[in-house]
Each structure stands twice: as structure tokens, then as C-alpha cells.
């Protein structure tokens, strides 16, 4: 393979979705950017364009970002039609201009899904994900009540697989990539992470039922097995976890039907 000489600088045109607020009409606006270093990150390009807009008396482009190292899950642009842009296994903040060619027009939009309404420009409201977590994405373990950590061995394979799922950064690329705007990869990741561990067994059925019910109620669609979600995922979380989610959901539903939970109730005084 012949190594291509890296150009010293490049110039591109950003075609950016501008929308003043929720429910307002939006449109694409072009912003040329010249003489850029190929080592600049895509978000740094937005910084530079925004400083230019500010100086010209314009309004900077709103975009979500924070850690800029691919772990917080805040950044969320669809670039040239792909959530987080070209490249595999990266978030928007890990995209560098060396990926593009001189003269490229780069189309930048927010993650689009009914459950993620636009707040402004490229920023969307993803609190729906938090609500799914609040419904059941946890193991109830109050501080002070935990047993000795090594009292419960976890086979390395299970722990590693749980970690593969637990890597989810909650960015929502899976939803944006899916034609049904399904959140099943997101839910599957959490259900699998906790369901693979012995600590997660007590609430396993309750968790999957509650998380799926909440997901459905928030306007996310179902999965039709095209796996765009995994392809767009910055952590490359496998769609195999969706199969695991479906299995857990089915078993839990059957158990709930044939062996309903006892009513419980307060203890004797």
C-alpha cells in the first residue's frame, strides 16, 4: 500500500442544520471553512466556525459536547447521514479532519428521532434514556448493605461479556441510526450487563419488563433486525445483546403471566 501524502491544510464547507428551538422550522445553512489542519477534530472545527460567526455578529451553532474523548456520550451529530459520521467505533468528538478531503461538503444534522426532540440546532433532548434507566436500569444495593466483594465469584467470561455491554455511553446513535428509531440496543446493553452478573438476578425479570415498557411508552420503535445500531455505535456494542434482551423479555413475560409475583406487603409489626 502506498501511503498518501497528508495535505498540510484543507478547506471544507459545513452544511449545518439550524433550528432556533423545539417545534420551530429548521433549514440547512452553508459555512465555508478554510485552511484547516488535518489534525483538527471535527468539534474543534465547529469551535472555529462559531468564533467566526460570533465576530460577524451571527449566532453560533449550538452543539452538544463535553469530554471530547469519546466517553461521556454528549456529542451527537449525524454527519453525512451517519450518526457520529464516517469511521467505526468512534463518537463525533473522535472524528478528525484527516478523514475528509479538501473541498468536501459536510452535512451536519442533529440525531433525529421522535423521542429525541431538537432543543436547538444540533442539540437534542435525550432525557428519554434517563427515564428508561430510572424504570429499572439498576441493582438495588443501598450503601452499607453490600457483602464482601470476593464472596461472590463471577466467571471471567461473564464479567467480560457484561463489560462489553456496560460500555454503552448512552449517546443515542443507535436510535438515530435506526429507521424505526428503536432504543433496543441501548436497553439490551443495560439488561445484558446486569443480567449477566449474579448480583443482577434478583431483579432480572422486573428490570427487563419495566425498561421495555418505559421504552415503548416514550415513542421508540421496535427492532426489525437490520443492525444499523451496532454499526453506528461508538463502542461497537453487538446486536447479539438484542437477542439476549428478547429472550429475557420473553422469559420474564411468561413468568409474570404464570407465576405472578406475590403481593408481598409489610412485615408483621
Amino acid at each position: 500500500m502506498v501511503a498518501l501524502a497528508t495535505p498540510r491544510t484543507l478547506s471544507v464547507t459545513l452544511r449545518v442544520w439550524r433550528q432556533a428551538g423545539p417545534g420551530q422550522p429548521g433549514k440547512f445553512v452553508d459555512y465555508p471553512a478554510k485552511d484547516l489542519s488535518p489534525n483538527m477534530s471535527f468539534l474543534e472545527l465547529l469551535d472555529v466556525v462559531n468564533d467566526g460567526l460570533t465576530l460577524q455578529g451571527g449566532e453560533p451553532i449550538a452543539f452538544a459536547h463535553d469530554c471530547r474523548e469519546g466517553i461521556c456520550g454528549t456529542c451527537s451529530c449525524t454527519i453525512n447521514g451517519k450518526p457520529h459520521g464516517p469511521g467505526q467505533g468512534i463518537a463525533t468528538c473522535q472524528l478528525y479532519l484527516r478523514t475528509f478531503r479538501d473541498g468536501d461538503v459536510i452535512v451536519v444534522e442533529p440525531f433525529r428521532a421522535r423521542a429525541f426532540p431538537v432543543v436547538k440546532d444540533l442539540v437534542t433532548d435525550r432525557t428519554a434514556f434517563d427515564r428508561i434507566q430510572q424504570a429499572g436500569g439498576f441493582i438495588t444495593a443501598r450503601a452499607g448493605s453490600a457483602p464482601e466483594a470476593n464472596a461472590l465469584p463471577v466467571p471471567k467470561g461473564d464479567a467480560d461479556l457484561a463489560m462489553d455491554a456496560a460500555q454503552c455511553i448512552g449517546c443515542g446513535a443507535c436510535v438515530a441510526a435506526c429507521k424505526n428509531a428503536s432504543a433496543m440496543l441501548f436497553v439490551a446493553a443495560k439488561v445484558s450487563h446486569l443480567g449477566l452478573l449474579p448480583q443482577g438476578q434478583a431483579e432480572r425479570d422486573r428490570r427487563v419488563l419495566a425498561m421495555v415498557a418505559t421504552m415503548d411508552s416514550l415513542g421508540f420503535g421496535g427492532c426489525s433486525n437490520q443492525y444499523e445500531c451496532s454499526a453506528a455505535c461508538p463502542k461497537l456494542i453487538s446486536h447479539d445483546f438484542i437477542a439476549r434482551l428478547n429472550r429475557d423479555y420473553l422469559t420474564a413475560s411468561l413468568r409474570a403471566t404464570f407465576q405472578p409475583e406475590p403481593a408481598g406487603g409489610g412485615g408483621a409489626g
Binding site: 441493582i139 444495593a141 448493605s145 466483594a149 464479567a159 456496560a166 452478573l197
Partner: peptide, 22 residues
């Protein structure tokens, strides 16, 4: 030491040895 106990109880997938211990 309590922190590790607490995190494991919550399902934090710490690295483990083949024997299943941390």
C-alpha cells in the same frame, strides 16, 4: 474496602481472574 464491596454489589463489572475473583 467498603467502596469495592458497594460497587460490586451494584454490578460494576470489574476485571476478574479466571477463578472469578477480582
Amino acid at each position: 474496602v467498603n467502596i469495592i464491596d458497594q460497587c460490586v454489589a451494584q454490578g460494576v463489572p470489574f476485571a476478574r481472574e479466571y477463578g472469578g475473583l477480582l
